[in-house]
Amino acid sequence: MKIADISMRDAFFDALYDIARQDDRVMLLTGDFGAPSLDKFRTDLSRQYINAGVAEQNMVTIAAGLALSGKIVYIYSIAPFVTLRCFEQIKLDLCCMKLHVTAVGVGAGYSYSTSGPTHHATEDAAVMRILPGMTVYNPSDNIMVAAFAGMSYRDPGPKYIRLDREKFPLRYEEKHDFSDGLALLKRGKDMTIIASGMMVHQAFKVTEELLKHSIDAAIVDLYRLSPVNDNLLLQVMGKNKPVVTLAEDLVAGGIGSIVAEVMADNGCQSRLKRLGTENQYVFQYASRECLHSHLGLDVASITTGILRWLQ
């Protein structure tokens, strides 16, 4: 199957499988969580695969013990469980000791739309990005996902990669260099939308709508949430152009906060509107589109909100 036709997790584990075949130091620990692509990993590389059980805190400490003994370790579960459930283990065992362990979480934002706040990942990126030494990737397509498998293998230090459950159109060419941490995907003279993950794709639909109102918006894909490439972010935002951030995250701490911090630290005077989830948990059990409508994150609501704010 083409890379565009598979899930993000399969794109990641297919790439990791190729790496792990070449290097038996690479280990994958799962919190009893699967993926079609994991079957061949489990079968062909059984010595490098451990089902650590439904015990995420222990999965992190085991990973740390293995990394302290020369292994390059990946831990895998649903996004909130592989981050929030074991936050202190990640802080002390991975970040304090600067270990080569990558947490891979599936279910960015409202990927698990029918499972409620237990499975929604709206704080995970915010919480992970404040940890010193932690690199946080939030990919928007499968080219990027596959690249992150290689980058996380090559670069020592703790990382968190949050994957969506949905498939998205490819936005990048093969062999794209993702070391910049962000990319200007669409130019626009009137304003800039800074989005991440699935909301990058939502941003493209929003810009089409805005164009009908003669607003030409740029789109920036902020795919590395920590460390943030401040200089490039300021450069692509442009001077004195209104900026809108767009994410499913809680506004506090998420993409909106990241951009606000960069602007404040650099004396940037542009107007800023942060769109995302306001201070709440969502007890709606329906499609992701329904949740977006409820939260004002559907294309129509975002467009209307931006137009009103620009006036």
Binding site: T61, I62, A63, A64, G65, L66, S69, Q89, D93
Partner: peptide, 10 residues
């Protein structure tokens, strides 16, 4: 104990 278990496993 988790750290030690990882080291022992390695």
């Amino acid at each position: 104990l988790g750290l030690g278990s990882g080291m022992a496993l390695a």
